[in-house]
Amino acid sequence: MSSITSHGLTAADIHKTIKLLTNNLVNIKDTTGEFLLKLDDGRVIDTKGWNDWEWTHGVGLYGLWNYYTLTLDPETLRIITDWFTTQLSRGTTKNINTMSPFLTLAYLYEETHNKTYIPWLDTWAEWLMHDLPRTKYGGFQHETYNSFNKDELWDDTLMMSVLPLAKIGLVLDRPHYIEEAKRQFLLHCQYLFDPETGLFFHGWKFNSDEESKKTGKLGHNFARARWARGNAWLTIAIPTFLSLLSSLPPTHPSYLPTTSFLFTHLLSLLHAQCTALIRLQTPTGHFTTLLDIPASSGSYPETSATAGFAYGLLLSLRLHYITGPEYVDCAVKALKAVLGEIDADGEVQGVSFGTAMGSDLEHYLRIKVTSMPYGQSMAVMALEEFLRTFI
């Protein structure tokens, strides 16, 4: 009997590919030291390898968690729990990016009821609520290991810190965390969404009061870069956030009605972005690292963003946040483009390294390409979501 296929793909082959990706994820090595993050206090953070603590690992954990929720695969759960056992015993300094593993830890606590996780969830969420520096109007300032990024809002923050805060609020029954997460989504989207294109700028910086008086401007969007992976964080974060709250019982204090302003507003932004993505997808199914600049002008195809868009589109289709064959076609083309970038060892090719805020567009075009944990896991996320079409 022939295997059931969906868009020419079989579930067995996808499971096999996910296993290959996972093996590569936990065995990636920075053989040259080129991608190590060296801090002023003498610490060296391995952003490329699996045995350290940075946003790259937080996204990696979340990709694995998504696959575990679909399959209950014990080996995947072991990888996740082993990472937390090792890294929580070591600890690290708090910032926007190191908050990212707590999204998975909140789900893991919900699954295992391991009470040793509670102090970590509590302490880090309280730091985020009360001690993280804020921008004007109370935005989460995108502070990282080595950059204060004063008065800056980044796309990345919603994925790395705001989603974890919302999930922790649910598992620890702290509705005020969720209200803060709502505020952050609204504030970030207010300053990052580009109504001319339906895309999101990478960042926004508030001017000082003195600068505002001198220029007459509240701030600026740096290079006005419509950066692909930054946009992908929104394609992932918006439907994830909406589904977290709208799927609660109507009697729950954090229930978000689908008729509420927040829900309809974020949904309209998601719809605008997904519509723009159809227009900007390359014939191969990829998206370029600067979405609205073609490859002929130096904007190379970027696989992690392509995987993120595939996942976000497929998730939004499953949740009925977007509908139509054009979105299905876009998602499947992106998924197949990602599959084409996975080599025989399970290493995802064409992934751009971590990308700080750029003051000009050339900054984004110069980012080096290398295998990274988030490239592996975003591919896993896209493939895991596609597996649901076989159910």
Rank of each mutant, 00 (worst) to 15 (best):
W83R: 05
G324M: 01
M160G: 04
P74A: 10
T235G: 07
A331V: 11
V26G: 10
G91M: 04
Y327S: 08
T71H: 11
P133K: 10
R388M: 12
G91D: 03
D156W: 00
H176N: 11
L37G: 09
N66Q: 14
T323L: 14
T123R: 10
T306W: 01
W154A: 00
Q190H: 15
A337P: 01
D292P: 09
N51D: 14
S3A: 15
D151W: 01
Y321H: 11
G219K: 01
L242F: 14
Y327W: 08
E179S: 14
V44D: 03
R366M: 09
G60Q: 05
A225P: 00
P239W: 08
T264M: 12
E196D: 10
F309Q: 06
L25K: 08
L256S: 07
Y109I: 05
G285W: 02
Y67P: 08
L244G: 02
S359W: 07
L291T: 06
G58H: 03
Y300K: 08
T123S: 15
H320T: 13
T323N: 14
V332W: 05
T144L: 15
M99A: 04
Q190K: 15
K167F: 15
S268Y: 05
G58Q: 04
E210Y: 11
K136C: 02
F390I: 05
G230N: 10
P325E: 11
I367M: 10
I322V: 13
V44M: 05
T17D: 13
Q190Y: 14
H7Y: 15
S297C: 04
T259H: 14
I4C: 11
M160W: 09
S2C: 11
L128Y: 02
G308F: 03
S254C: 12
H363M: 06
P253W: 00
N66M: 13
S161T: 09
Y177D: 12
T258M: 12
H7G: 07
P301W: 01
D209M: 01
Q376W: 00
L37E: 13
D360G: 01
W233A: 01
S247M: 01
T32V: 11
K368T: 13
L339A: 04
L339H: 06
W127D: 03
H176W: 09
T288G: 07
S254Y: 04
P373N: 04
L248M: 06
G203N: 00
D40M: 01
M99H: 08
T157K: 00
I168N: 05
T215R: 13
N207I: 05
